[in-house]
Amino acid sequence: MGALLEVSGVSVSFDGFKAINNLSFSIDTGELRAVIGPNGAGKTTFMDIVTGKTRPDSGKVEWGRPGRDLLRLSESQIARLGIGRKFQRPTVFVTQTVQDNLLMALKKDRDPLSALFYRADAVDLGKVEELAVEIGLQEHLPRLAGELSHGQKQWLEIGMLLAQDPQLLLVDEPAAGMTPAEREHTTDLLKRAAQTRAVVVVEHDMEFVRRLGCKVTVLHEGAVLAEGSLDAVTSNQDVIDVYLGR
């Protein structure tokens, strides 16, 4: 199976500060991958580049086979290609119900006219119900998203990502600010999601990463420092230096 996303030789700098420095990275279809790294390693900038929010100064980002150049597409076009993104802080539409949030994310035509004439039918409502069960919010469908707890909002956002039915999920620190029980639920959600699509999880928390049990990429100063199983990278001398200081 070929690579789903291929990032090669990407660099970007802000006012002289190199946030990403000749980064190369690739992920296969249906792969679960954790990306770790200290603060300022360029994890979020990496996601910004893949999702089209930031344009790199140089390098290539290609999607699928044959490779499609993501750098020429807008954020929404990239999202429609099948890359879903979850932000660090939960971002759901707080003034709308859980059901409306999920309906909006549901994979449908995204143009204004389709949205204007769209009316939810039984099939779509059924899908939303299914997703709600999956993320454990079936009780909360008619509630406003703003009334949910922090963890529930995170799950709702993951549910919205799943509703988009993407081939690649980019998840930024999903466990931040969660109780241990919530973390466990989140781990399960992500693992189940990875059975049908590729998932990239950016995370600080080693325990969380260990529970995911997948290949790990370590970023440092905007470049890949090490890659492999968690045990392999944690025993890598470079990684130890970076995390513990020289």
Binding site: S76, A79, Q96
Partner: peptide, 17 residues
């Protein structure tokens, strides 16, 4: 309404804002 409240989120859902 989503655009009003959180424009980037709508964009990353794939809507041409």
């Amino acid at each position: 309404r989503g655009i009003r409240d959180d424009e980037p989120r709508v964009r990353f859902l794939g809507y041409p804002v």
